[in-house]
Amino acid sequence: MELESLATLNAERAARRAAVLVTPLDGGPQRLVKAADVAGDPLGAGIAERLRLGKSGLLETDAGRYFLTVQVPPVRLVVTGAVHISQALAPMARLIDLDVTIIDPRTAFASPERFPDVRLLAAWPDAVLRDMPIDRYTAFAALTHDPKIDDPALAAALRSEAFYVGALGSRKTHAKRLERLGEQGFSDMDLARIKAPIGLPIGAVSPAEIALAILGEVVAALRLTSPRGEAS
């Protein structure tokens, strides 16, 4: 592995772009293929499939055997609501290597004392998500219970390739939410992406238990399907 390939791999990942290091197992030079250049590569189809799965693995072709080291960006969890559940969610999410951002314009909630060591943005989600777009390696959870904050963020998430979109609230709350978002022009298929009530059905009661249910659902979306949410 040349230092230059290794450096490019790391730089692409830091810039939230995927890249693949192709190692011919019968000898021959390695090469690095950036996500944007996959289509033009001789092994394009095989590399594209590996990228879709987001997993490293072997590729066997008539031309030989290759190992593809797939590097995808760190998985992000974007949350609206610096609420009680988020206080439990943030440290738990960090343990499973999710890069957490919490957005809440209410400065009384979004205080560093309540959220040590977390990227906490005391701003409106539409402004934040314009500067930090949600990509296919991002999960989004709406947790404020306040439509003024959650709705614009959910709209941004539904317009994105987010691999997970979840929203807190009872079935009744969610039905009203779907009505509002429907009026904004989202189709039933768009709206069906929203996991609500949020979280795996484990009978969660306390904020930490609800956080666990949410994270379980996020991990399932990440691991049981490809980053785009297609069945793998």
């Binding site: 230092l3 290794l6 790391n10 590097q71």
Partner: peptide
């Protein structure tokens, strides 16, 4: 992923 960052740092 962090491990490969570290590999680069060690080499440099």
């Amino acid at each position: 992923d962090q491990i490969l960052n570290e590999a680069e740092a060690w080499k440099r």
